[in-house]
Amino acid sequence: MTPHPTAGQAAWAHTPERSSMLMLRVMTWISLRLGRRAARGVLHLIAAYFLLFAPASRRASSDYLGRALGRPARWRDLYRHFFTFAATIHDRVYLVNRRFDLFDFEVHGEDTLHRLLAGGKGLFLMGAHLGSFEVIRAIGRKHQDLRVAMLMHEDNAQKINSMLAAINPEAVQDIIGLGHIDSMLRVRERLDAGGIVGMLADRTPGNDTLYPVQILGADANLPIGPFRMAALLRRPVVFMTGLYLGGNRYAIHFEPLADFSAVARGQRDAALQAAITRYATLLDQYCRKAPYNWFNFFDFWQPADTTMPPKS
């Protein structure tokens, strides 16, 4: 897929990943010239633009917020939702540039991560399009062993890599493009070296098999691929989200999600289903805790077999 820097509002609305890429490009330009405080003024324009000109994203936001807030979403809620999205995308520019001094991070559950890493066999860190995953870089700054290799669809890997190269060339090597045996072997090698492999496990990277779950009291489907990989490679899985709290504040949460280290093959399917269900529960919990941090601006809630999430 080729990038579409001039994509119109319809394309923005239907392809969240492209919209975030375009936004990241715009924000990089602005941020590097104006600084964080001034650039944040532009975020309001972007939020307003989404609110006015991205009807499909607005409907998805409204539908989601209604579930997460437990009441009908108002315009100001939608605005805040888009603003939070824009703010986290914008902050990626600074996080990739290692400007951690600009932020105030509170960290919960980091000991879980270190305890599991101490095993020396590596682990999977699973996030979602919920808050900022990029804030893991702030954890990584203190510990060399916390370099995270992000696993993602090859198309996106290439786009994001070229974007990261523009922001900070040193950030590039941390992405593994999904899809071929070489990348799978790289994942294993990374883990064997005691490293962390990160994934956003709430969207399918292709024609993945979906597993029905309940999130915010409604039917949704999650791809089983990320958990299949963790089960196959017999590794622990830690959930991570970096919730944006406003201003320059983020709350980073780590939660134990699953551990496939000692799961026998005959029990793998049951362990896999338990892990996906636990992941759904965590998504539910953090959506309620920080409602404006959910960044799937498409119709995520669908009964089984009909969900067609965009490529992630």
Partner: peptide, 28 residues
């Protein structure tokens, strides 16, 4: 899919004592 192929790779490496590496011979 690629995860299936990974599983095959793990099983045959163990069975036949292969050293498969990401930068090894032409894995594809």
């Amino acid at each position: 899919d690629s995860i299936d192929v990974l599983e095959v790779a793990l099983v045959v490496s163990k069975r036949y004592g292969l050293q498969l590496r990401s930068d090894g011979a032409d894995n594809r």
